[in-house]
Structures are given as C-alpha cells and as structure tokens.
Amino acid sequence: MKGYELQKDNNPKTTPKRVALIVRGQSARRVEDRGETVPTAPNLLLREIVIIQACIILLAVMALLFDAPLEGIADPRHTPNPAKAAWYFLGLQELLHYFPPVVAGVLLPGLAVLGLAVVPFVRVNWETVGFYEQRWRGRLLWVSLAVALTCGVMALYLAWPVIVPTLVVYGLLVLPAIPAVPERLRARLGRVPLADWIMTWFVAETVFLTLIGILFRGPGWSWIWPWRAGLY
C-alpha cells in the first residue's frame, strides 16, 4: 500500500486487533485506544429510546399544531404565484433564477453531489492540518484566485446571492493572515483545515440561497422583505 504505513498495536488490553492508518506527511502516531466501554444495554439503548420518543413527541406536537399544506386541486391552466417548491429545493430554485436550467438544474447540483461523493478520495480532505499550519502563502494565493474566478463568473450572471457567502467565508479564511486580528481568533481559525473551509463554503451557499428562497421571494419571484410583505 503506497502512501500508508502499517502499524500494529500489540497490546490487546488497550486496543482490539485493528489496523491503524497513518496519513502520509504526518508523524506516525499510535491509533488512539478505544477508550472505556460499557454494555450497550441499557446505556446506549435507553438513550436511543428516549431520543426516539423525543423525536416522535416533537413531530406529534408539530402535526397537532400545523396542518400539512394542501392547496387547491391541481389545475394545469393556472400556475400559482409564486410557485415555490419544497423548502429544501428553494436553493436550487433560486439558482434557476440566475442560470439556465442546464447549469442550475443539472451542472451545479451534479457537481455538488460529485464533490460530496469524492470527499474521502481527495488528498486535501485527508489533511487534518490547519490551513495556516504549513505552506499557507502559496495556497492562500490559489484559494484567492479561485474565489475571484467564482465571484467573477457569478457577477456575470448577476448572481449576487452566490457571491455574498463566498466572500464571507473567504473573509474568515483570510482573517488569520491579518496581524491586527486578535491572537486567539487567529489561532482558532488558523487550525481549520482547507477541507473544512470548502465544506463550510458549500453549506453557507446552500443555507443562504435556501433562506433567500424561503423568506425573500414573493410573487413573480421578486425580492420582498418578509416583515413588510409577509411570507409567501
């Protein structure tokens, strides 16, 4: 196995017989022992039961208080205004507002899924090293270029809601490079690995676009302020 070294931990008291994986570029460390164990029943089982019950209680209360939405019978002649999808698709619908369907409906979600699927197979994700813990200047340059490129393309399509979270996350990423920032914050942010930055960016985009779709879009997919025009 290229790139990995095998290490056996021979002490059966601390560790069951397992293979430990050590990522290249880091000093070999012993795989942590599994820690103290307790019988699953009742310790875990009871917790799970309580969690299950809590879930059902929450759902039941929700079901008692709020009726599932049901609009008028489907009428192919009239599209309601606005025609909003389920909330988890509103980010996608917001993207469709800016990009042609092939980009927003196929390319971007396809890329997102592909990106998620290959997470464990990309080198950058194995690194549990903070972004600023090694060779950060060159990488910051690359990241900056990528951000600039993304924002440029988005600006072409006037997709401001995509740019905003990008810049916010980028701003946080850059913070540790600025000496004026308090040391504790720099240390805290500096330890975040690049993989986490990318994921955070993805989550920020998803959440931001979805929230816009839920809260700030009204008839004709026009921009509204929910505290003035109400929720649609």
Partner: peptide, 24 residues
C-alpha cells in the same frame, strides 16, 4: 447514578409520549 438518570428520562419521556399520542 447515570443509569438512574437515564431511567428517569425514560419514564418521563414515555409518559409524555403517551400523553401526546392521545391528543389526536
């Protein structure tokens, strides 16, 4: 001690569960 607490949680949540399910 923690096991006692767990059982207490279990008791309380079960009763709550019963009550909530009886409303509908």
């Amino acid at each position: 001690e923690s096991s006692n607490r767990l059982w207490r949680w279990f008791g309380v949540s079960s009763v709550l569960f019963l009550v909530v399910m009886a409303i509908s």
